[in-house]
Design a protein around this nucleic acid. Structure first.
Lengths: 247, 247
DNA sequence: CGCTTCGATATGTCGGAGTAATAGGAAGGG
DNA sequence: CCCTTCCTATTACTCCGACATATCGAAGCG
C-alpha cells in the first residue's frame, strides 16, 4: 500500500490519537464545505478516488459522509455522486457545524444572524430562568460569575466561564428546546469577546452587566432579568458590530 | 443466511424501495431511542449481534450508528459498547430527530417546550420579516394563505399550507440561524392543529389571525406584525394546552 | 422528433479479517 | 482496608474486495 514513507506523515496530519478516523475525515471535509472551499452544488470526487486521496479506506470515508449527510451538508445518489447542498439545508445550529463554521474566520453575516437570534432568545430565557431556577442552578451561575471575575476575558478560562454562565441560564429555563440553542449562543458569546479583544483592550467591563442579570434571576424578578439581559446583549452586539466593521 | 422465509418479510418491513438501507435502520433506531424504548445510559447489543438481529450487514449498521452519533443520540467506544446519551446531549432541533420525536405520540413536556420557543421566536421573526420581506416572499405568504383558505386545516394540504406560511415568514427574516428553527416551529405548528382537531371540530377559525399577521407584514408594520404573531401563538398555545389537558 | 430501452458508472450493501483502544478486574503497594 | 498500577479480554474501528442496485445518458425504435 505505502508507495513512500510520506503516506504516514500525511496520515498523521489527518488522524490525531484518540480521535476516530472517520471523525477526523468528517471534520476536515466539514470545515472545507462550511468555509466555502466547496461551493453548494459542487460534486465531490468519487468515493474510491477521494478515499484514496485522503489515504483512508472507502468504509471510513463513507462513514464520514454519513455524518455530513446527517447534518444536511451533502447529499449522495448513485451515479450522480455526492454534491454539496445549499446553505438553507445545512443544520447551522448543530454543535459540530457551528464548530466547523468557527474553525476558520467565520462569515460575518452568519455572526450577525447568530447575534440576532441571541438577542431574541436570551432575554426571554433569562426571564424563564428567573421564574424557574432552583438553588443548584443559581449556584452554577454564581460560580461561573466568580470565575469570570477571577480570570480575565482575555484568557480561555475567562471565556469558558462566560459561556458557562449563559449556558447555566439556558439550563435553568427547564426547556429542552431552548437548551438545544446553547451551542449557537455559546458560539456567539465566545466570538463577541474574541472580536472585542482583537479590536482594543477591554473597551468596557462586561461584568457589571452580568451581575445585574444574575441579581435579577436570584431575586426571581422576571421582568428585571429580561431587561437586564436585553441590555447586555444589545451592548455586546454594538461592541461586536464596531469591531467587525472596524477591521 | 436465511433460516426461514420470514427474514424477507422482516426485511421488507425495514426497507422501503428507494430508501437507503442504513437510513432505514437509523430511522428505526432513532425512533426507538427518542420514544424511550431505550433509556439514556442503556447499552445497545454489540455490532455483530445487533446487525444480525436487524438482518443487515455491519457496514449498514455502522453507517446508521454514525448518523445517530452525529445527532447526539448515542456514543460508541471500544470495549464499552454503544450507549444512549442523556436527553441533554440530543440535537432536538435537528429535523430528523424532530421527525422521530413526532413519529409516535410525542412527549407533552417537549411539545410545551417547543411552543414556548415558538412564542419567543416567531413574534420577533414576524417583525424582522415585516422590515425585510421582498415581493417574492410576500407572494409566497399570500399563496400559502390562499391554500389555507381553500383546504380545511383538517386536511393534510391545509396543514402543509399552514406550515408553509410560517416557513415563508422565517425565510423572509433573511436570517440563516432563525431559518434553521423552521423544522422545530413547523413541528409545533403542525401538532397544534393536530391536537385541536382531535379535541373538537375547529374550536376557532385561525385564519383571521394569520391574515392580520400577513397584512402587517405586507404593510411593513414591524410592531404590528410582532403583536399580531404574538396573539396568534398565544391563542394557539391556549388551544393546544386545553386539548392536551383535556385528554 | 419524442419515447423507450439499454448499458456504463458510481453509490450502496455485503462478509470477513485484522488492528487498536479501553473498561474492568487482578495484582501489588500504601 | 483502600488506593494505585498493570494486564487482559472484549469491543469497536479500520481495511479489503466483491457484488447488487439505482441512475443518467445515449442509442435505437416508433
Amino acid at each position: 500500500m505505502n508507495e513512500t514513507g510520506d503516506d504516514d506523515v500525511e496520515r498523521a496530519a489527518v488522524r490525531r490519537p484518540g480521535r476516530r478516523l472517520h471523525g477526523a475525515v468528517a471534520n476536515k471535509l466539514g470545515i472545507a464545505i462550511v468555509s466555502g472551499e466547496y461551493a453548494p452544488g459542487d460534486v465531490l470526487s468519487g468515493e474510491v478516488a477521494f478515499a484514496e486521496e485522503l489515504n483512508v479506506s472507502r468504509s471510513a470515508y463513507r462513514e464520514a459522509m454519513q455524518v455530513l449527510t446527517a447534518k444536511g451538508l451533502v447529499e449522495s445518489r448513485p451515479k450522480a455522486g455526492t454534491r454539496v447542498l445549499p446553505r438553507s439545508r445545512w443544520n447551522v445550529l448543530d454543535p459540530d457545524v457551528l464548530a466547523w463554521a468557527f474553525a476558520r474566520t467565520p462569515d460575518r453575516k452568519f455572526v450577525r444572524d447568530l447575534f440576532e437570534l441571541r438577542a431574541v432568545v436570551e432575554p426571554a430565557a433569562a426571564g424563564m430562568a428567573a421564574a424557574r431556577r432552583d438553588r443548584l442552578q443559581l449556584a452554577e451561575m454564581r460560580e461561573a460569575l466568580a470565575l469570570m471575575r477571577r480570570h480575565s476575558l482575555a484568557s480561555e478560562e475567562g471565556r469558558a466561564a462566560d459561556r458557562d454562565f449563559h449556558k447555566a441560564i439556558l439550563r435553568a429555563t427547564g426547556n429542552d428546546a431552548v437548551q438545544a440553542l446553547a451551542a449557537g449562543i455559546g458560539a456567539a458569546v465566545n466570538w463577541t469577546t474574541q472580536f472585542k479583544q482583537r479590536a482594543r483592550e477591554l473597551p468596557r467591563n462586561p461584568l457589571p452587566d452580568h451581575v445585574r442579570v444574575f441579581d435579577a434571576i436570584a431575586a426571581q424578578d422576571v421582568e428585571g432579568a429580561t431587561q437586564a439581559m436585553r441590555t447586555l446583549v444589545e451592548l455586546a452586539l454594538a461592541d461586536t458590530q464596531d469591531a467587525m466593521d472596524g477591521e
